[in-house]
Design a protein around this nucleic acid. Structure first.
Length: 264
DNA sequence: AGTACCACCTGACGGC
DNA sequence: TGCCGTCAGGTGGTAC
């Protein structure tokens, strides 16, 4: 689930539920999701502290504990948060639980455990060390053009490259290409500046819309691909059939009529 | 600089 | 019913 819009919604959710409450303990149900820290180490670091603010960069989010250090959350393909009180509301694959003094608890759920939690001293250092590009949401045209210009390879690969800009994944790259009317296998060096500019505009609109709609596809505008993303489904623009191809080994959906092949 | 493929994991689904 | 391959919105490493 988690690309930039989803992670932004998780961040807002954590802000709304889990700030300024004393952490009474941390329960680790599977330490595979912890990076560079043990379950007891995480508990010792956080016990008695408060999460006081959050930030997000691309698909990563950070929660600051007492202004001292940050907890980094990455959600992999299946991660999310759930704030709850009663045991029956605990999500099915809760891996780490942050207990608060009001009796509530924030669960980090990760079915496939491809996500990670770690302690970092400084979020900015983490972003630099991991060579993440600027956040895609609100990225200026100049910065976008600067990073994309002169690339080879396919457009979709470039959009998903986290070192060029951070936050776009498999689903939203398909949406941006659909909105722009570009075939996902188009080579970067076949894009003129006008198309690149259009792609940037659609990217901003898609991301902003998705965040506004809480990343819920059911709330997306009628002409978005995401709710119709599946082979055999109908294109929301032309009614044609949505096709599936592989780009860099990732399932990629597009409309052959609205996104004509670069070779024809 | 790019791409292909594997690995890390669990679980849902369709075919036989 | 059970087994098996395939696929799923993540990233990282390696070989070409």
């Amino acid at each position: 689930m988690p690309e930039l819009p989803d992670v932004e919604v998780f961040r807002q959710y954590m802000e709304a539920t889990s700030l300024h409450k004393k952490i009474t303990g941390v329960e680790v149900e599977n330490e595979r999701v912890l990076q560079d820290i043990t379950p007891s180490g995480l508990g010792q670091k956080l016990k008695g502290r408060l999460f006081e603010r959050t930030r997000r960069h691309g698909k990563h989010m950070f929660a600051c504990a007492d202004g001292e250090f940050w907890v980094m959350f990455h959600f992999g393909m299946t991660g999310f948060f759930k704030y709850f009180k009663n045991e029956e509301d605990k999500p099915p694959h809760a891996r780490v639980l942050f207990h608060f003094d009001n009796g509530f608890c924030l669960a980090y759920d990760s079915q496939r455990m491809l996500g990670k939690i770690r302690i970092v001293e400084d979020a900015g250092d983490f972003i630099r060390q991991n060579e993440l590009g600027q956040d895609a949401l609100g990225l200026s045209w100049d910065a976008f053009q600067n990073r994309m210009h002169g690339r080879r390879g396919t457009v979709k690969t470039a959009l998903m490259n986290q070192s060029l800009m951070a936050g776009i994944g498999n689903i939203y790259s398909d949406e941006i290409l659909f909105q722009t009317g570009i075939h996902p296998k188009t080579q970067m060096n076949n894009l003129n500046e006008g198309l690149l500019k259009k792609m940037h505009e659609h990217m901003q609109r898609v991301l902003k819309t998705a965040v506004d709609k809480k990343a819920d596809p059911e709330e997306f505008p009628d002409d978005f691909l995401v709710p119709h993303r599946g082979s055999g489904n109908k294109c929301p623009r032309c009614g044609g059939e949505i096709k599936k191809v592989k780009v860099n080994n990732r399932g990629t959906y597009f409309c052959p009529q609205c996104q004509p092949s670069p070779h024809s």
